[in-house]
Amino acid sequence: MDILQVEHLTKTYGSGDTAVRALDDVSLTVGTGEFVAIIGSSGSGKSTLLHMIGGVDRPTSGTVRVSGEDVFQRSDEQLAVFRRREVGLVYQFYNLVPVLDVVENMCLPVLMDGRPVNERRLRAMLRTLGLEGREHHLPNQLSGGQQQRVAIGRALMNAPAVVLADEPTGNLDSRNSADIMELLRRSNRELGQTLVVVTHDEDVALMADRVISMEDGRVASDTRAR
């Protein structure tokens, strides 16, 4: 069953002679529980595609459906809720709130909804992420790898069906990169979450069930692992 459906997606920035078409009539589907890597050179449209899937930016034309629902038929307020509850977003630069500690950053999506934190899930995630004993550390008291683990914890706290990661290992050394990808891959396998990762890292792409290559805002190739 397909959990993501992208149909004729186009995104143009600017107008007239200065217009840049970041996405050009992109269509694809992603199955439930699939691990998809999106690769391509800088400016190929891969991050723009990920942001459209996650409801971070609106397309010029085309549709994105997640679990059968058209993402962009929602208001801006509804999109904010969608990003908190239905997808988990992981970025290269962590985007942690500097005045919040590890637990507060991880629980932020839940707290913003005014809902109680599932303490059992929180403790299990802290253990899985290797953050026990650092619950009250601020981001500037953590290493880069630990900060990325907090960002992943935040993305997974609501147990979203879809996890979207944009160069999640881009600022990390090889050891931390391997650990981060293993955490994401474990969540994909054990929880059946759909995982879509934008990456320049060939090792990450080799882990995926499927590799989509972007070029000039279009899908250049779509290859499934044997």
Rank of each mutant, 00 (worst) to 15 (best):
G114L: 04
V198N: 04
L4R: 02
T32H: 15
A22T: 06
I152V: 15
R65V: 01
D2G: 07
P160N: 10
G31M: 06
L138T: 09
V117C: 13
S187V: 13
L195F: 08
R186Q: 15
R218T: 15
G54C: 04
G14K: 09
L183G: 13
D2N: 14
R189F: 11
L191N: 15
G16S: 04
V64T: 06
S177R: 03
T18R: 12
S75K: 06
V90C: 04
V56K: 02
R226W: 05
L100C: 05
L96C: 09
M106S: 09
G62M: 04
V87A: 01
D222S: 10
N105K: 04
T12S: 12
T60S: 14
N176Q: 13
G40K: 07
V102F: 06
H51D: 11
V90G: 02
V110D: 06
G33Q: 00
A80Q: 02
L79Y: 00
L164Q: 04
G217H: 08
T10E: 06
T128M: 14
T10W: 08
M207I: 08
G62I: 01
M214E: 05
E190N: 05
V163M: 10
H136E: 14
E135T: 11
D76C: 08
R149N: 09
S47C: 11
E69I: 07
G145D: 06
E34R: 07
Q92H: 02
Q148G: 03
D201I: 00
P98T: 01
F35V: 01
N171H: 07
G88V: 02
Q147N: 09
L89C: 06
G133V: 11
V197T: 11
S27C: 08
C107E: 12
R74M: 06
S44L: 09
S42V: 01
L142F: 05
L49A: 01
P139H: 10
H136P: 08
M52T: 15
L206G: 11
S41T: 14
S41K: 13
V26G: 01
T63Y: 00
G31N: 15
S177T: 13
A22S: 12
V87I: 05
S41Q: 13
L138H: 11
Q73I: 06
Q78G: 10
A159P: 13
A220S: 14
E7P: 00
L126M: 13
F82Q: 04
D17K: 00
G40N: 05
E135S: 04
G133C: 11
A161L: 08
R189S: 12
A161P: 07
L111A: 12
G14W: 10
S174E: 12
S143A: 07
A225T: 09
K46L: 10
V162Y: 02
G45C: 08
